[in-house]
Amino acid sequence: MRISELTDVRAARPGAIAEAAAARTRRDGPPGRLMIVAADHPARGALGAGGDPVAMAGRADLLDRLCTALGRPGVDGVLGTPDVLEDLLLLGVLDDRIALGSMNRGGLAGTSFEIDDRFTAYDADAIAAARLDGGKMLLRVDDADPATAGTLEGCARAVSGLARHGLMAVVEPFVAHRIEGRVRNLLTPEAMIRAVSVASGLGVTSAYTWLKLPVVPEMERVMAATTLPALLLGGDVESGAGGPGEPDAVLDGWRRALRIPGVKGLVAGRSLLYPPDGDVGAAVDAAVGVL
């Protein structure tokens, strides 16, 4: 199927999505080092990349970039919301790829309720029914915002639900605060150690929990706070961890952090899909190279 045909298929045969999910060939065996491409930003209203505030607004362009990335050697899979993953299912590019469903996208970027990060996309049962390989959630702990408590509870339920299905639960934790009304993540070693400690204890079991972490100074200290496996967060503006305009610095940070035994791979989005030179394939190949 071509990208230009997606809308017509969705309108005429919505059941084609479930059919594609049922027919998808899933990957077998241990995960090893993972290279996952992230594409869940639009559902949070975070459409900017580089200097373009609406870089991710064109869905056909985004899907074309994702298809390019998923076709590169060494790329293991993709992280996305239902709309994105279902487009990729219809396009037939998720066979033998890991597919992670993004779960809580209610904390829209730049809003007064951003910390109230409700689960407005996948839930654990839907991820299992769609034969996906796990779910991802964002957890920002803001000591001054009471909405943190509800997000903590929602993440704990999601971790427990995914574990009941034997599926990976990927938690992306931060300590956050507001500066001039905008949520900012604290990227000090001490803040990340606290975030990792809180995230590691969520749910009725941690057996299926992985962490998704930014590269920060003294990364060895951060990883020493947990025995859970971790994936490195790509340098993008949502996390505050580097930026797509600094590809060499991002790659160097990944390279150093990947030497730590508990680090098992990368999850990168805008820094790979919207590189400064526009060459998605080269950006993905460079990221795979550090693995």
Rank of each mutant, 00 (worst) to 15 (best):
E114Y: 02
D116W: 10
D117K: 11
D117W: 03
D117I: 00
D117G: 05
R118K: 14
R118D: 14
F119S: 13
T120K: 12
T120G: 15
T120V: 15
A121F: 15
Y122E: 07
Y122S: 10
D123F: 14
A124H: 10
A124N: 04
A126S: 14
A126L: 12
I127G: 01
I127Q: 05
A128M: 03
A128H: 00
A129W: 13
A130F: 02
R131N: 06
R131E: 11
L132W: 02
D133L: 02
D133M: 04
D133P: 07
G135N: 00
G135W: 01
K136T: 14
K136P: 06
M137H: 08
M137P: 06
L138M: 03
L138I: 04
L139R: 04
R140H: 10
V141N: 09
V141L: 13
V141S: 02
V141G: 00
V141H: 03
D142G: 13
D142F: 05
D142H: 10
D143F: 11
A144G: 00
D145Y: 04
A147E: 09
T148W: 05
A149S: 05
G150H: 11
G150E: 10
G150W: 06
T151K: 08
T151S: 07
T151P: 05
L152W: 01
L152V: 15
L152R: 06
G154D: 13
G154R: 07
G154S: 07
C155K: 03
C155D: 09
C155E: 02
A156L: 13
V159L: 04
V159I: 00
V159H: 09
S160H: 09
G161M: 00
G161S: 06
G161N: 00
G161E: 03
G161V: 06
L162F: 04
L162M: 13
L162D: 01
L162P: 01
A163F: 07
A163G: 08
H165C: 05
H165R: 07
L167V: 04
L167I: 08
M168E: 07
M168Y: 12
A169W: 15
A169T: 10
V170R: 10
V170P: 06
V171A: 02
V171H: 02
P173Q: 10
P173T: 12
P173D: 03
F174R: 03
V175W: 07
V175E: 08
A176G: 06
H177Y: 13
H177Q: 08
H177T: 14
H177P: 01
I179D: 15
I179V: 15
E180G: 11
E180Q: 15
G181I: 00
G181R: 05
N185A: 03
L186D: 15
L186E: 15
